[in-house]
Design a protein around this nucleic acid. Structure first.
Lengths: 118, 118
DNA sequence: GGCCGGATCCGCGCAGAGCGGAACCGTCCC
DNA sequence: GGGACGGTTCCGCTCTGCGCGGATCCGGCC
């Protein structure tokens, strides 16, 4: 299907340029796990948190599974719906990443880390 | 210019849905400041770090200024070029956010925070 | 004046953000 | 068995904005 010629520029290939040390999870995955953990900690459903955040449940599901790159505004919205600040959320993600790193067996979940921080 | 009718769906308005507590910086801004701080700490130029990360200097500039939402792969690539892991980067962003929050006068810069963590 | 390097501006092609409808699954009740 | 319901994920779509190359701006040096 590459019949269309005359490219004003080559196709932009959004692939991994040069990721840092392999085996490290990507930001969207780490973030998503944290968001899901926090939501479960509150005993909430996808639809509830999504409604309060002003996003679709489908999209929140995708965010949590790390299959989409949420914008900073989206991150802030969901954080607000979960009653956490970006500071606490980012810290929770970092600690979760660290735990997963120091123990190759996934370590503490995000929700547990946040509970310890609180 | 809204002459085209028959909308299969309404226009997607990518605006702030419901951000968490106002006055909190957005993720992309906090991240960008950290990346620039780390780069300066190494005494590097935009072009050097960008080349090593496999991204354009223009884009790295935009990332650092928080005007673009970099993908997780991009974040990983630049982190790798700066010799930091996602863990350390995320932690540095969190601490930077926290410092800025506890002192409304911008507090410690990201690079200083990272130096303390190292 | 010129040249150079560092950073930013500008406009662009097309990848993917974010969404609504549909589908899947598990649980409950008859 | 059947159906109804709720929770989550799949799927396809529109159109926004990612990431880039060329151009521009700025400061320093000769």
């Amino acid at each position: 299907m590459a019949s269309s010629v005359s490219p004003l520029r080559p196709a932009i290939v959004r692939t991994d340029p040069k990721p840092s040390p392999p085996r490290e999870p990507l930001w969207r995955h780490a973030l998503g796990e944290c968001l899901r953990g926090l939501r479960h900690e509150r005993g909430e459903k996808l639809s509830e948190t999504a409604r309060r955040a002003g996003v679709s449940p489908q999209y929140l599901s995708e965010m949590e599974r790390g299959v989409k790159e949420p914008s900073s505004e989206m991150i802030a919205a969901v954080a607000g719906a979960l009653d956490v600040t970006l500071v606490d959320l980012t810290l929770a993600v970092a600690e979760s990443l660290r735990s997963a790193q120091s123990s190759a067996s996934r370590g503490a979940t995000c929700s547990a880390v946040y509970a310890l921080a609180a």
